[in-house]
Simulated assay, not measured.
Amino acid sequence: MSMIRVGIADDHPVVLQGVSSLLRTQADIDIRFATGRIGELLELLLDDPVDVLVCDYEFEMDRHADGLNLLNRIRRTVPHTRVLFLSSHSSAYIVSAALDAGAAGFIGKRHEEFANLAAAIRSVNNRNVYVPDSLRSRMMSASANGSNRAGWLNRLSEKEATVVRMICEGLSISDIAGRLNRSPKTVSNQKNAGMKKLGARNDVELAKVMREAES
């Protein structure tokens, strides 16, 4: 049996332990390391190359280690390692941007997706791109409206874009309403409309989409 060398990186200890426990039951997967720190991850990748890296999309303790920035650092370090992102933030834009930048796959942390992690690892190790059906359908829907970065932002009206950017700057609905001379209800509706168009489910995901779309 050909063994798949796997590394795991996630700064949440519970997730790190859960992924390790799940994969240790797979006869064809050899866990070479598990770490919660980016600095250590890059060193480990050089010292003990792996076929597939299961990696969180964002490391809260490193402001330079989220999304595409993290992927670029990993790919510069070990260009032949397949990166499978594991994340609770899975808007269609974030997934599309990661795949376009060279990620081998994207899988959510929800149980129904997480349960397929071993199959996802085998798929990307065989040079396939892995995206769960639930994410694939959202991506196909979004791509019908334009998948490039400019296209995503162009989907917002001028008023929606203004509100979304102010939300991402940390302003509250009431603060924005006061500054723009709009009612809180109007601002809230414009925010929700912008989130829907960008495929973001919450403020954290909205900030990620906007940050990467404007980078």
Rank of each mutant, 00 (worst) to 15 (best):
S2G: 01
M3S: 10
M3E: 13
V6I: 13
V6A: 14
G7V: 08
G7H: 09
D10W: 10
H12M: 10
P13Q: 13
V15E: 14
G18V: 11
L23A: 06
I29W: 12
I29Q: 05
D30Y: 03
I31F: 05
R32T: 04
R32D: 04
A34S: 15
T35W: 06
G36T: 05
G36Y: 05
R37N: 14
I38Y: 01
G39V: 12
E40S: 12
L42T: 12
E43K: 13
L44T: 03
D48K: 09
P49T: 08
V50M: 04
D56C: 04
Y57Q: 10
E58P: 00
E58R: 15
F59L: 08
F59R: 11
D62G: 01
R63F: 06
D66F: 12
G67I: 05
L70Y: 06
L71H: 10
I74S: 06
R75P: 00
R76V: 10
T77V: 14
V78E: 10
H80V: 03
T81C: 12
T81V: 07
T81Q: 04
V83P: 00
F85S: 02
L86S: 05
L86E: 07
S87H: 08
S88G: 11
S91C: 05
Y93N: 01
A97W: 01
L99V: 03
L99E: 08
L99P: 01
A101Y: 05
G102T: 11
G102S: 05
G105D: 05
G108W: 05
K109A: 03
K109T: 14
R110A: 06
R110Y: 05
H111M: 09
E112F: 09
E113K: 02
A115V: 14
N116K: 13
N116D: 14
A120Q: 08
A120N: 11
R122L: 09
S123Q: 14
R127H: 14
R127N: 13
R127V: 02
N128G: 01
V129H: 02
V129S: 03
V131S: 03
V131G: 04
S134L: 09
L135D: 03
S137K: 15
R138L: 15
M140E: 15
S141Q: 13
N145I: 10
S147F: 09
S147W: 09
R149V: 07
A150W: 07
G151E: 15
L153E: 03
R155M: 07
L156E: 06
L156V: 07
L156K: 04
S157T: 15
E158I: 09
A161E: 12
T162V: 15
R165C: 03
M166G: 01
G170W: 01
I173E: 02
I173Q: 02
S174E: 14
I176G: 01
A177D: 08
A177H: 06
A177L: 06
R179E: 11
R179G: 01
L180M: 14
L180Y: 04
S188A: 10
Q190P: 00
K191A: 03
N192K: 15
N192T: 12
A193P: 00
G194F: 07
G194C: 04
G194A: 12
K196E: 13
K196Y: 10
L198S: 08
G199C: 02
A200N: 02
R201K: 10
N202H: 08
N202R: 00
D203I: 10
L206P: 01
L206I: 11
K208F: 12
V209P: 00
V209S: 03
M210H: 02
M210G: 00
R211C: 01
E214P: 00
S215L: 08
